[in-house]
Amino acid sequence: MRLTLHTDYALRLLMLLAAEPGRRHTIEEIAARYAIARNHLTKVALRLSQAGFVRSLRGRHGGLELARPPAAINLGAVVRATEDNFALVECFDAARNGCVITAACGLKGPLQEALTAFLATLDRYSLEDLVKARPAGRALRRVLAATQPGNA
């Protein structure tokens, strides 16, 4: 299974907001720091805002910030909110299934089990787990610090 860029960008955006708490980040800044398209990131931020993960504030001191603590943002919930389709194979979508072996195929069950296990694994982690002070979290903060404007 491969996550969409939308979900990839959503996770990166959330990691930045969690790694640099106490400040608001603009779409322009985040897009520049991650070298991704501003328009795509705007759609990602909108979806995260609608799902209650991010708060968007307008005005001179506006920007994006986490809507709840990083420990309260579950990775499985983020992936479910940002992925549009979990149909790993054609037969997962009954309305569009044209596979001629569906009635006799044993593949759907194991793939469904694998998808369930994938999401269950993500459900065990929060955004805090990705950015808390341990080697990976410290390394992430160093890399993000280097992407701040004026540090390039």
Results as ranks from 00 to 15, higher is better:
L14S: 02
M15P: 02
A37Q: 11
L57M: 11
A10R: 02
T42R: 12
Q112R: 11
T7C: 09
A139L: 12
R38C: 00
D84G: 09
R33M: 02
A51T: 09
N97P: 08
R12C: 02
E28P: 00
R68D: 09
A117L: 14
R138L: 13
L130I: 05
L3P: 00
R23P: 01
A120L: 11
F92N: 11
M1L: 04
R68H: 05
R134P: 04
G98Q: 11
L66E: 10
A120Y: 09
A95S: 14
L57R: 13
A72E: 14
L111I: 15
A32P: 01
L46E: 12
A77M: 06
T7V: 04
E83R: 03
D8M: 04
N97M: 08
E128G: 14
L144T: 02
H25V: 03
E29R: 12
A145R: 10
A136W: 02
A81E: 03
V100Q: 02
E65D: 00
R142P: 01
V78A: 06
G63R: 09
I27S: 00
C91N: 05
R96P: 08
R134I: 04
A114I: 15
A133G: 14
A103N: 08
T7L: 02
R134L: 10
A146L: 10
A37P: 04
T121A: 13
G62D: 03
A31G: 04
A67T: 05
D84Y: 04
S126V: 12
I36A: 02
A120I: 10
R138C: 06
A104K: 03
R24I: 00
L46S: 11
A139M: 06
Y34P: 00
A146E: 07
I30T: 15
L46V: 14
G59H: 06
V89Q: 07
L115Q: 15
I30Q: 01
D123R: 14
M15Q: 08
A35F: 05
L41T: 03
M1W: 03
T121R: 14
E128I: 07
A35I: 08
R47K: 15
R38G: 01
L13H: 05
R24K: 07
L46Y: 12
R58W: 10
H6N: 04
M1S: 10
A67E: 08
V89P: 04
L130G: 07
T116D: 15
L140K: 08
A120G: 15
L119G: 15
T4L: 00
L127S: 15
E83N: 09
L14H: 06
A94M: 09
K132V: 07
I27Q: 05
P21Y: 00
V143T: 06
A81T: 02
A72M: 09
L48K: 10
V143C: 00
E90A: 09
R2A: 01
R68M: 12
G137D: 09
T121V: 14
T116H: 14
L3I: 05
A32S: 11
N39A: 07
R68N: 04
A145C: 03
A94D: 13
C99W: 01
R38W: 01
A104T: 06
R134W: 13
G98E: 09
Q148P: 00
H6T: 08
G76P: 04
E29L: 04
I30G: 01
L64S: 02
L11F: 03
K132C: 08
L119W: 12
S56C: 11
T4K: 00
N85T: 11
L3T: 03
A114V: 15
A35R: 08
E29T: 04
I30V: 15
I36M: 07
